[in-house]
Design a binder for these strands. Sequence first.
DNA 1: GCAATGATACAG
DNA 2: TGTATCATTGCT
Length: 201
Amino acid sequence: MVRLDYSFFDRPTLNVSRELLGKKLIKIEPDGNCLSGIIDEVESYIGSEDLASHARNGLTQRTQVMFGSPGRSYVYFTYGIHWMFNIVTEPKGVPGAILIRSIIPTEGLNTMKSRRGKASTGLTDGPAKLTQALGINKDWNNYNLCDSNSSLYIEDLGTATPQSVSAPRIGLGKTPEPWFSMPWNYKIIKTQGLGSHLSIR
DNA sequence: GCAATGATACAG
DNA sequence: TGTATCATTGCT
């Protein structure tokens, strides 16, 4: 079991995105409790030119983290309710981030369930669901995931990177082309009968 | 189908 | 200082 370090994230965003699938996201609670899940779906936001990215407006107070060092977290609040967890990529000065959209829970299920509430469906199968289950909020923004004693990090299980499909990103609203259709959403293949618009990697 | 609920960014 | 816009979710 190896903790992913700076060199893993300091590479082209799409490579990092695809290889992040099948890796384990781990959060150690203050009481020592371990919460974890296998990364199942991610989405890339690359460069200032990407009009779907928060970095489209250039360097601002909110987006400065995206321009910073790779291997750190970019956590932001949206829709007045939800926290989104991203991992910064690209060299310092170049904005880039990967939104973690879905994980398959592996450890700490009871804690996750209690945080999600029993009326809700799906423990961690949505970007805001997993932040709620793991307890990720603004306190975790600009957190160094690569530090050897960090409480939030990604682990390489040593398994081969799973097969994935790429598709256009989700929830982009009025983002103009070509950005709206860029196939920068990656997901682990697990069902048959995929739509023909999806390309298998 | 749509309300919830607030930070952000930009116009003026 | 006002307001349009959201990288969503869950209930109707």
